[in-house]
């Protein structure tokens, strides 16, 4: 490990952004540190400066604003998992954060961290993409929001500029009549990262057809995969086995799956087919049994 590591504890976002501007690529933002510590220990990254967000007040709140939940960047995974308001308003989000790694990692890892890291095998990104969440970021020129769908660019690469910091994420509460699901498929151990993770949202019309269908697949490719054209195969239809199967086949055909120690590309394609189907069925059944659609 490098001997000269400058450790900063800025107390305002402006100071943190200024430090990133000053140090450029040599600086890393540190929040929960779970991912960064591993990358540093394995010498995959060797920053000369660490900028901690832990002394900046106000980044650890969860609040409901205009029909959305706003979750601050320093909120820990476990706080999302246990949050009463998240469990009441967007239960799939609490469930998904509760499936990440183990309780120790969830006590440390943050919402901003899992976004900024853009690890293809994290669970929350696919759910954020399926729920049309928007990432809030702040840089020297002020704030902007980036749709989650556009935020994850490639392996460990986001739409963030080098001197921008994630400050939170805004997740719209699904409309009445919606059901949601996240299926995490692991191939090695219960605390493993997913081989494939699928998030789905179904909103049923009064006639039982799907007024909305959204499907995002995580861990199968470099970034969460969502295909509006294939979601459209199900919209306006009753989600029968045949229709759901068509959406699942379309997703399996469209994703350029990757190979890693959790599964080969061929295997992942077949698991995308299975778990897209199951995720849609779960969301559909949740929508049907939830509070009545209007």
């Amino acid at each position: 490990m490098p001997g000269s590591l400058a450790f900063y504890h800025p107390t305002t976002l402006e100071d943190a952004i200024g430090l990133l501007g000053e140090h450029g690529d040599e600086a890393k933002v540190v929040a929960g540190a779970t991912a960064l510590t591993i990358l540093m220990r394995q010498r995959l990254v060797a920053p000369s400066a660490l900028v901690s967000l832990g002394s900046i007040p106000g980044l650890d709140r969860i609040e409901e604003v205009d029909g959305s939940l706003r979750i601050g960047a320093m909120v820990r995974h476990r706080d999302v998992e246990l949050s009463q308001i998240v469990r009441a308003r967007i239960p799939v989000l609490a469930e998904t954060f509760g499936k990440v790694a183990n309780v120790r990692v969830r006590n440390a890892a943050t919402v901003g961290g899992v976004l900024a890291e853009s690890d293809y095998a994290s669970d929350p990104p696919a759910v954020f993409v399926a729920l049309d969440a928007e990432v809030e970021v702040r840089g020297p020129n002020g704030e902007r929001t980036i749709p989650a769908r556009d935020f994850f660019v490639a392996f460990y690469e986001t739409a963030l500029e080098p001197d921008e910091i994630v400050t939170g994420i805004v997740v719209p509460v699904p409309a009445a009549g919606s059901g949601t699901s996240y299926h995490k498929f692991v191939t090695r151990s219960s605390e493993d990262r997913p081989c494939v993770g699928v998030a789905a949202l179904v909103r049923l019309a009064p006639d039982g057809s799907a007024a909305d269908l959204r499907v995002a697949v995580g861990a199968a490719a470099e970034t969460p995969q969502r295909f509006p054209d294939y979601e459209a195969l199900g919209r306006g239809h009753v989600l029968s086995d045949d229709i759901v199967g068509r959406v699942a086949d379309a997703y399996a055909g469209a994703i350029d799956t990757l190979d890693d120690m959790r599964g080969s590309a061929w295997y992942r394609t077949e698991m995308v087919r299975v778990w897209v189907r199951r995720a849609i069925e779960s969301a559909r059944d949740a929508a049907a049994s939830g509070p009545a659609a209007h």
């Binding site: 450790f7 779970t34 510590t37 183990n102 120790r104 006590n107 440390a108 605390e191």
Partner: peptide
């Protein structure tokens, strides 16, 4: 952070000592 041998309680909550500067 996967095995728990380095578990420490931080404000009463378990964390991995190996993953925290």
């Amino acid at each position: 952070g996967m095995c728990g041998a380095c578990t420490v309680l931080l404000d009463g909550r378990p964390i991995s000592g190996c993953l925290l500067p």
